[in-house]
Design a protein around this nucleic acid. Structure first.
Length: 319
DNA sequence: CTAGGATCCTGTCAGC
DNA sequence: TGCTGACAGGATCCTA
């Protein structure tokens, strides 16, 4: 799933297309994917798009908000009116003419990277469609369709949920979310870690109430950066390692935000071929069998707390 | 309270 | 080709 950097990239991307625009219709194709009354957001202007950890919050002018969590396979894709088929993108990609201007002008896609970013929508993974429009002028009273926002989610773990804006911070997920690494003190991080002192360090830092934003990729990358074996018990970390781990968590995620997360612009390479945005920064994630960039040893994959986990067995020792 | 496993769901891929 | 099991960028629920 999209981790914090991808969600932040989506937030910034959608700001350009739908901030201060209104929702004319909500079409729900999968009941499980939409919680709460859709009527509450019809005709309402989106006045703010916020992010808490991996959760996005759309605030509407009537005091209602919509929380979107993409979980493992969620995507948010905006297509301008007339661009629904995605055919234009595909032609450009096939012609080797793909440029990021495509996404800045007509479309934006973020989240779990797959061909839905540029193929025809809606498709069988589309769960909710939001039609977006804007008023032409203050006094004209006419409105114009802008485009469609698609919530896609192959595995249906994600959701859109309508709640009161005043209730956002007391939502069960938001309420227990810890701070993000760049605003958390080492002392607070250590205190949160030590609630799980008998657990392995990797699942501990995946716990969003310990530190917000890390998922399976950035957890592996942060542990690699600090040379900590993911199966070490949390209680075995020194104060120095704790401080370095917090720093690394911030660095790996900030670096990914700066490079655009897993958007269409990075999923599809400039030459039009299907790309892997992980290539740009991943040192261990999905690099099993390849050499460690620090020592040359072969990266291996193991299973830790039920999750695929990538380490350099030479740099990251268990004892 | 924590630790660890099962679970939600769809799709893909490796190995018969 | 068809089948089967493992696995997947997350979080919650259940049990001990």
């Amino acid at each position: 799933m999209p981790e914090l950097p991808e969600v932040e990239t989506i937030r910034r991307g959608l700001n350009k297309f739908i901030l201060n625009k209104k929702v004319s219709s909500v079409k729900i194709l999968c009941d499980k994917s939409f919680i709460g009354p859709k009527e509450a957001i019809l005709g309402q202007k989106i006045i703010n798009i916020r992010r808490f950890g991996k959760a996005l919050i759309f605030d509407f002018e009537n005091g209602v908000s919509m929380m979107v969590h993409l979980r493992m396979t969620g995507q948010l894709i905006f297509r301008a009116s007339g661009e629904e088929s995605g055919r234009n993108y595909l032609e450009m990609i096939e012609a080797g003419d793909f440029k990021t201007t495509l996404y800045t002008e007509k479309s934006f896609a973020g989240g779990h990277p797959n061909e839905s970013f540029y193929s025809e929508l809606p498709n069988k993974q589309t769960r909710v469609l939001f039609e977006i429009y804007e008023e032409d002028g203050a006094d004209s009273g006419t409105s114009q369709a802008i485009g469609t926002l698609y919530f896609n989610d192959q595995r249906k773990f994600g959701f859109c949920k309508v709640i009161e804006t005043s209730e956002v911070e007391s939502d069960s997920f938001i309420k227990k979310l810890a701070k993000e690494p760049w605003v958390m003190s080492v002392e607070e991080f250590k205190k949160n870690l030590m609630r799980h002192k008998n657990a392995e360090i990797k699942p501990t830092i995946l716990d969003q109430s310990v530190v917000a934003g890390l998922g399976n990729i950035y957890a592996d990358e942060a542990l690699y950066m600090t040379k900590i074996h993911p199966e070490r018990l949390t209680s075995s970390l020194s104060d120095t390692e704790i401080a370095e781990l917090l720093e690394a968590a911030g660095v790996v995620m900030q670096r990914s935000i700066d490079s655009g997360g897993s958007t269409m612009a990075t999923y599809v390479k400039a030459d039009g071929t299907k790309g892997n945005y992980l290539e740009k920064f991943a040192q261990v994630f999905r690099r099993e069998g390849e050499p460690c960039n620090r020592c040359g040893a072969e990266i291996i994959k193991l299973k830790v707390a039920g999750r695929g986990t990538h380490i350099c067995p030479n740099c990251q020792k268990k004892f």
